[in-house]
Amino acid sequence: MRHALIAMRAIVLREALRFVHQRERFIAALVRPLVWLLVFAAGFRAALGLSISPPYQTYITYETYIVPGLCGMILLFNGMQSSLSLVYDREMGSMRLLLTAPLSRAWLLFSKLLGSTIISILQVYAFLFVAWLFDITLPGWGYLAVLPALVLGGLMLGALGLALSSFIKQLENFAGVMNFVIFPMFFLSSALYPLWKMAESSELLHDICASNPFTHAVELIRFALYVEVNGMALVWTTLATAVFMALAVWGYDPARGMMTRKG
């Protein structure tokens, strides 16, 4: 057990060191949601009327509405970015080094996932801090209550990235992930507009959004920010995490031989 924990700490630390070395990645991760918050939301404020719906007790501005969605966006992009780095690692061979360690593969993958989730969460807090500077504030306890929701959401999206990375053979294919995973997941969710609003224009789109795991991660975060638990979102997010993690372990199973190309 001691061995496993030493290895986990080292893997998490390596993720952190890599992140520190990629300062532009941190800035990009912060600028992206801020552009949405300060530019997009300002433009849409007038166009979108929001009625009072849980967890909100009063009318809220559009900026306030999209904060949880943008927290989710950071987790989503970071989860995919870490999967991109896994494909890169595999091409560079350092994934081989990791997978030849005398520990179970599921543990090694989970450690990697935990490392990238911790990095994501630090970025979310940096974003919430900047939002606070721009007067977009949340209940004080919400900043603490959201932590477990961010951990679960981060693990879910990281596990999705991990699973995808096991099926992507080459780095070039990653553009497809952007188009076919990240954007649909983000836009077909409650990140930018409430689902009831979506239902007004299309029942079908509403149903798709409602079954999108990302929607549930965002709702889990939204309620947690107001110190409330959304039971349905919690169940969905937990289930999706388990499924994506199982897929990742399956994808990296040596019996399936996904790791190397012909030699």
Partner: peptide, 18 residues
């Protein structure tokens, strides 16, 4: 890991082996 020092690379590996 090219961004890490020689010692950091070895420490990472040592930890993977407990």
């Amino acid at each position: 890991d090219l961004d890490l020092t020689v010692r950091q690379n070895l420490r990472y590996f040592a930890a993977l082996h407990g």
